[in-house]
Design a protein around this nucleic acid. Sequence first.
DNA 1: CATGAATGAGAGTTCATTCAT
DNA 2: GATGAATGAACTCTCATTCAT
Lengths: 193, 193, 193, 193
Amino acid sequence: MGEKSVQKKKYILETARRVFMEKGYKNVTMKDIVEACEISRGGLYLYFDSTEQIFLEVLELDAAETDDVFTENITQEDTAADILTLFLKEQKKELLRKKNTLTVAVYEYFFAHKSTDKNNMLRRQFDAGVRVLEKLIEAGIASGEFYCEDPRGAASNIMYVLEGMKIDAQTFGITEKMVDEQLLYIMQGLIIE
Amino acid sequence: MGEKSVQKKKYILETARRVFMEKGYKNVTMKDIVEACEISRGGLYLYFDSTEQIFLEVLELDAAETDDVFTENITQEDTAADILTLFLKEQKKELLRKKNTLTVAVYEYFFAHKSTDKNNMLRRQFDAGVRVLEKLIEAGIASGEFYCEDPRGAASNIMYVLEGMKIDAQTFGITEKMVDEQLLYIMQGLIIE
Amino acid sequence: MGEKSVQKKKYILETARRVFMEKGYKNVTMKDIVEACEISRGGLYLYFDSTEQIFLEVLELDAAETDDVFTENITQEDTAADILTLFLKEQKKELLRKKNTLTVAVYEYFFAHKSTDKNNMLRRQFDAGVRVLEKLIEAGIASGEFYCEDPRGAASNIMYVLEGMKIDAQTFGITEKMVDEQLLYIMQGLIIE
Amino acid sequence: MGEKSVQKKKYILETARRVFMEKGYKNVTMKDIVEACEISRGGLYLYFDSTEQIFLEVLELDAAETDDVFTENITQEDTAADILTLFLKEQKKELLRKKNTLTVAVYEYFFAHKSTDKNNMLRRQFDAGVRVLEKLIEAGIASGEFYCEDPRGAASNIMYVLEGMKIDAQTFGITEKMVDEQLLYIMQGLIIE
DNA sequence: CATGAATGAGAGTTCATTCAT
DNA sequence: GATGAATGAACTCTCATTCAT
């Protein structure tokens, strides 16, 4: 595949991404993507065989590009509490962003392709989140900022709460106030006053 | 609609329920339900106009029948901790039930029919859950069983966690161990040792 | 068929008549008639096998009931011109009546059941009209009221014009002025000034 | 839509035209046209969305192609009587053509889409016919060929008669003799002997 | 007689997918 | 590589007609 083709493929993925953000996963047809991309039906099939393949490659591209805005913003001087606050702030931003989000599409996809495989993207992300938070909490305990008897439990708790809020945001809406209250509750459970 | 029709309608709803449990919401066609019920195409239309109508009536029937297995099992002598434990045990059972569940269908439906309306079923259930848990925690505090500075936050925390675990159960699976650990974490955050 | 049945049949025909007036012939389904009559589906089939049969019986009933409002209003003293004027006035009334009319249904039916048979209802009516008008014109000539070299041609001319106006009334509308002008033209072609 | 598509579209319209001539308007389904054209179900939908759209485009094509066989045959030397005779001869030919005619379909369509709008095709055609005939009659009067006190009335009379005969031709048939007699009657009403 | 539930044929419509150009 | 016309399977929905009660 030549240079040109690579670019076109990327163009299709970016355009398809917008389509998935708007319509979720199951609602999206090859026709939708063809029309959004303004290419020919046959043209799309040169690059992709199905909406599933396109969606998975959109997710891959996403993963590759995300590359932690989060870690980039951490400096040496930051305390564990600072970092956790930063992390939660990022999550909150994500949660409240109503439109530009693949959340619905991702859940729709994984509902239909549930797998307990270690490679399941959602699972990897969840596990990774728990690990990072656990380390962070342990670091906070070590530095005397946090008190917590079960860092693993606390880390999981945060991840489950975030997952729960993400769903609620997409099904019946969630207000900034609700998010703030819960994040505050979480922080206060950890911080030594 | 006579007595007989009422029974048939119920039969269709029960059969459709199984179909929704198996295939989620969006995958289900009138044809699927017709075939599952072993009735004619036109026959189904005598009772329902669309899969959406069927689904909503399935949910209604569910709500009517659920009628709190939970509250039925509470006796006068139970302490707040007992009741909370019972509640969490019920939730755990629900969570781990892999097949017999409308969870996926419900989320799929509400992804597509997101509404911040007070009448949104998911919202009502969430709010009701928070209210019940808050009362319970306050009762536990009053009886000296629990310690908690923010009963509302704790109640919300539990509901979000349950929501999060429900999703995880349906997307990448969740083990009994994971559930137990998190429920334990929650209980220990409340109980005075 | 008992007395009661005869009444019910008549009731159905009268109700169906209204339906045909509203929707024409082809648009009417057995369901429409069942609903308009507020009887059961099976019930209708006890009396009629198809919309066609119903429609034909509606026409028969009509023919039986029409029984010439026209001839009833003619008295001995009326001149030919008086009678012709009366006839055209009746036709005009019929033409301008927008709603209560089976015209569209009748044409739709006979488009689909064209027959050059002498018994074709439209043909019988046309021929009868020509005959009556011809006699009338001849009577007018005899009495010195009219001048006409081809009474048969004039009679046919009137009938064709009425037919043409009936169609126009049902397809693009026709104003009272248009009708009056044409009827005046016809009368002036006959009357000796 | 490329050159090829334009041809195919025309092919479909021509084929559909035949179908409408055979079955009228309301009886024609997308399936009928698909089968007549020997194309696939989906193929037809690439070009047209409904039988109504197809029908209207058939009418447009017709209007575009008709382009007055009539006016083409008029020469400078023709007298008004010659032209009127030619016109009526054309109409007679049209009237007696039993099969190759959209008449029934057109009336069926306009029964269901009655509109007093100036743009109603039938109305435009009627008005245009009246105008042309009126001019012609006035020309004939000026040249001493015709005698007529109400050229407008005479013109309308001719158009209504033609409309009436068209209907009769499609419902109970009309013989060449009947047409000839009536056209003769009309001509004799105008010509000075 | 009368009911109305039930059936199944058939029309409309949309899309994934292929293929000649 | 790229196009877009073409196909056909799958779904939705409506009715004429039947039949057990």
